[in-house]
Amino acid sequence: MPKTTETTLEINLSALTHNYSYLKSKLESNTNFLAVVKAFAYGSDSVAVAKHLEALGVDYFAVAYTSEGFVLREAGIKTPILVLHPQPTNFKTLIDHCLEPSIYSFKVLDEFISTASHCKQQDYPIHLKFNTGLNRLGFRASDCNNIVEKLKATAAVKAKSIFSHLAASEDLNEKEFTLHQISTFRAVAKNLESLIGYKPWLHMCNTSGVIHYPEAHFDMVRCGIGLYGFGNSANEDQNLNPVASLKSVISQIHKIKPNETVGYNRAFMAEGHQKTATIPIGHADGISRQYGNKQGFVFIKGLKAPIIGNVCMDMIMVDVTNIECSEGDEVIIFDGIHKASTLAESANTISYEILTAISQRVKRKFLK
Results as ranks from 00 to 15, higher is better:
52 H>D: 02
259 N>P: 03
45 D>W: 09
110 D>M: 07
87 Q>R: 15
43 G>F: 02
308 I>P: 05
220 M>S: 04
160 K>T: 14
40 F>T: 13
32 N>A: 14
146 N>W: 10
206 N>W: 00
4 T>I: 15
210 V>F: 01
145 N>R: 10
238 Q>W: 08
57 G>N: 04
346 S>L: 04
177 F>W: 09
290 Q>N: 14
325 C>G: 01
132 T>H: 07
210 V>C: 06
181 Q>Y: 03
85 H>N: 07
54 E>K: 04
112 F>G: 08
233 S>D: 11
57 G>W: 00
357 A>V: 13
292 G>L: 01
42 Y>N: 05
25 S>H: 01
230 F>S: 10
347 A>D: 02
329 D>Y: 08
167 A>N: 10
218 F>Y: 15
18 H>L: 00
366 F>S: 09
167 A>G: 11
236 E>L: 02
110 D>T: 13
11 I>H: 05
323 I>F: 01
262 V>R: 08
111 E>N: 11
68 E>S: 03
60 Y>A: 07
247 K>W: 08
307 I>D: 06
216 A>R: 02
242 P>T: 11
93 T>Y: 13
95 I>E: 12
278 T>E: 03
292 G>A: 10
2 P>F: 10
177 F>A: 12
340 A>P: 02
319 D>N: 13
36 V>W: 00
327 E>C: 13
71 V>P: 01
339 K>D: 10
131 N>F: 05
321 T>W: 13
8 T>C: 06
108 V>R: 00
63 V>L: 10
322 N>D: 15
198 Y>R: 08
270 A>S: 10
130 F>T: 07
221 V>M: 01
333 I>P: 01
54 E>F: 06
325 C>D: 02
107 K>N: 13
88 P>F: 01
196 I>Q: 04
195 L>E: 10
4 T>L: 03
55 A>V: 05
298 V>S: 04
282 G>H: 02
186 R>K: 14
71 V>H: 06
189 A>Y: 06
73 R>Q: 09
324 E>C: 11
27 L>R: 09
201 W>I: 07
274 Q>R: 13
314 D>R: 15
84 L>I: 03
89 T>R: 15
